[in-house]
Amino acid sequence: MPNPLTGDPKSHDVSEFKDSITGHCLCGSITVTIRDPTLFDGRHGHICHCANCRKVSGSFAAPNLAIEKDKVTIEDKNRTLKVYEDYETMSGNVVRRAFCSNCGSPVRSETPMYDGQGKLVIKMGMFPRIPTPEFETFADHRHPWQGKHEGVTQFKIARGGPTL
């Protein structure tokens, strides 16, 4: 496990991740590697403010990355990866939310919206550095005290819908 004093993302230059980036759950049982040399070129990923993502992340928002499945390797050395089927979604479609059953860290989500595209959503909190987000979803559900992220498109609810 990494030293807790080394958790500052600014201590990792993005050049460290020119080919891939690896992160893990809190207990280290699950390791996720993203192979995408463009991950830190421009904006990638999004911040979601929906109630379900807030609950899963344990925070006021969740940093997510929708990415092609073939660019991601998930290693589950202790077989602790479990899936919760979330039916309490705005669309009514199930979101399969995977997490470590030992430490509770969120790992990925799979949604029918991306099934046909061969994508999944990686929960970015487990990585040493997170790319600058491209957009926010459910921005209408932000807390009044949250500041605006410069250059990040805010969709009131879903991506592609009305913006703030």
Rank of each mutant, 00 (worst) to 15 (best):
R129W: 03
K119F: 15
G116H: 07
V32W: 00
L81P: 02
L5M: 11
I34M: 01
W145Q: 02
G23T: 00
E134H: 13
N52G: 04
S109M: 10
V95R: 08
G42P: 08
H12M: 11
N3H: 11
I130H: 07
P63R: 02
V94M: 14
E16I: 04
P128W: 00
C25D: 01
L39F: 12
Q154K: 04
N64V: 14
L26D: 08
W145Y: 11
T31E: 00
K71W: 00
C53K: 06
I74N: 13
E136R: 03
E88V: 04
L39V: 13
S109T: 02
S11E: 07
R43N: 08
S29M: 06
E16R: 10
C27Q: 13
H46P: 03
D13Y: 07
R54F: 01
L164C: 02
S91L: 03
G58R: 02
S101C: 15
P131T: 14
K119S: 11
P133E: 13
M126S: 12
G125T: 01
N102W: 09
M124L: 15
I34G: 01
D13W: 03
C103N: 08
P144D: 09
K77M: 08
S57E: 07
D36S: 06
E16A: 06
K71T: 09
D8E: 00
F138G: 14
T22E: 06
R108E: 03
F60Q: 07
M90L: 12
P63H: 08
T73Y: 01
G118F: 06
P2S: 13
I74C: 14
M113A: 12
A62I: 09
I122W: 02
A158V: 15
S15A: 04
S59F: 01
K55R: 12
G104F: 04
H12E: 10
D115V: 05
F155K: 11
R35G: 03
S109C: 09
D36C: 05
T132V: 15
I30D: 00
C27D: 10
P9V: 01
C48P: 05
G58I: 01
R108W: 05
P2L: 09
T6A: 14
L65S: 07
C53H: 00
M1C: 04
S59R: 02
T89H: 01
W145C: 04
V107R: 07
C100G: 05
T38S: 15
V121P: 00
F99V: 12
A61V: 03
E110Q: 04
H143S: 15
R35E: 05
T153A: 07
P112A: 04
